[in-house]
Design a protein around this nucleic acid. Structure first.
Lengths: 130, 130
DNA sequence: ACCTAACCGACTTATTAAGTAGGAATTAGG
DNA sequence: CCTAATTCCTACTTAATAAGTCGGTTAGGT
């Protein structure tokens, strides 16, 4: 269950947006609230925007906001953007007697995906996990 | 769900031992059967032995064998040896509104651990997953 | 003695993660 | 129109980890 700093930052930033009142939230505010290195955060927010998960506005009073309601953005959505699509052919088919190991990884991944697809940013922001 | 090559090798090697008839199995045989770089495998087996998971015998007809019955060695046992004990303080306590994220990781880890603790080398070797 | 196989630490190389740098483009307010 | 705020973008650096290699040493059996 490895979760990179980048991924965690992305989720925390997104949660911050989910919890904020309507309107743009500047990156600086997010960085301070979540204690994320500013420049790095820029980088991540850019990626989220390009993926269409958030929108942005430049200039004074500019900032970022969610492209969809927080109830409709799952953790998996965010994670997939920053981690890239998982190439799950990595553990496919072990020699001989070790074959069944692949089924274990596959079960683990399945459960993980299920869980992360069930939980939305709204759940996190409101502390109402299912 | 990141699983290092080293970990996979360790599990596959252990499975090979679990499936073998009683008596020492030389590293070379495991390396060939599982297509694992020989020197690297040495390294891993050494680690497993030091952890008390397997025993060894030098000289001709030497090799490795499981220290306990395959039914009593879980995947978690093997993984913990090669990955080291998880420092799960890594994601402990996020600022403000992101706090509940920690519960998600914790749930994920709990499930993972449960599953890996339920499955033994015997299950893999005999392809009889629960 | 000799061959086989485990034992051991240190070393090299490749990849990824994490963060930084330096600016350019946009927008609102005065 | 000028200024300040703020996003946008590419590329770079550095640190950590993973993966595998090397060169031998030690012990056991025949």
């Amino acid at each position: 269950m490895r979760i990179s700093a980048r991924t965690q930052y992305a989720l925390r930033a997104a949660t911050e947006l989910a919890a904020a009142p309507p309107g743009p939230v500047p990156a600086e505010k997010i960085a301070v609230a979540q204690n994320i290195p500013r420049r790095f955060l820029d980088n991540i927010l850019l990626q989220l925007r390009r993926a269409g998960l958030i929108h942005s506005q430049r200039g004074p009073d500019g900032g970022y906001w969610l492209a969809r309601p927080a109830e409709e953005i799952t953790l998996a959505d965010v994670i997939m953007v920053v981690e890239g699509s998982p190439e799950h052919s990595a553990h496919g088919g072990y020699p001989g007697v070790a074959g069944p190991l692949a089924d274990v990884w596959s079960a683990l991944r399945a459960h993980e995906e299920t869980l992360l697809t069930e939980i939305t940013l709204a759940h996190i922001a409101k502390d109402s996990l299912p």
